[in-house]
Amino acid sequence: MTAALEIEGLEAGYGGAPVLRGLDLVVKDGITAILGPSGCGKTTLLRSVAGFVSPTAGRISVAGTEVVRGRRSVPARQRRLGYVPQDGALFPHLDVAANIGFGLSGAERRGNGPDRVTAMLELVELPTGLAHRYPHELSGGQQQRVALARALAPRPTLVLLDEPFSSLDASLREDTGRAVARALRAAGAAALLVTHDQGEALSLADQVAVMMRGSFLQVASPAAVYLTPTEPEVASFLGHASLLDGRVTDGEDVTCALGRLPLRTPCASGAVRVAVRAEQLQIRDAVREGRPATVVDISFYGHDATVRVRLDSGEELAARTPATSVPAPGERVRVSVVGDVVAFAATG
């Protein structure tokens, strides 16, 4: 089966400043999230695939058809891609049915057989009664679903979603995200989802590409990028890992300010950076075992709390503790580590 999207050595830039620095990516099917902080180039990547930005080098194929090779590219309107921009961009002068039917040929819109517009509304789990509403009469989540229905109506193999849930409020974001993922899977379309929200990327995607400064740092399954980051930056961007200096002597364990810790993946001997995730750190009373530390401050979330502590040796760490056992700022505590950790050979 041909991949929905293949990208090789893609470079792009505006006026000499490179934004994309040689990207490679294969999207076979399912949802691939491009995750990165704002300004990392992820939107430029999406727009290059869509055909709104002309890359300076590289190759892009959509469903086996080459749409970009070097500076030559197929016009956006001939790429047959679905595109869902940030706030949906529904056509304000057309009702829901006309929006969804916009990309269909006249025959498809009127045609015999099951009504495509109704089918699309059902696919994105919206009541068919909305068909003759206007966009401004819909909620934000409904607008996004209609935008997806519009993108899916012409049966594209690949749908591009540009931060589609960022303008929704938190409660709506999760529901809409899951509904969109279900609809994409039901339609059998692959998707490229650009987002800066790691929760969104990890929960919705089948593959996550972590992007920084125009390059991919790691492309892997959500579990892999979270549990076995290949770069310290990936570790600290995903899940707020604290980074400590350490030293690997035998390839199995690492010694650092928190003591001797087992390694999740083998690492060459020498100086390393150790990534310890907040949920791995346990804060206990000063009398138990662990490294002595002082509580700096606390953010209380209800279901849990983040406690920042300073080890007596000077390092600052963030730990997550249950809401029932939150220390007070200034309190003396002991810090210990649960489970194995990841280490990266120190550079420079």
Partner: peptide, 15 residues
């Protein structure tokens, strides 16, 4: 005008 509106129309195959 949000250019996204025009971009969506383009991506849906309009000249």
């Amino acid at each position: 005008l949000d250019p996204a509106v025009e971009e969506v129309a383009t991506s849906l195959g309009r000249s």
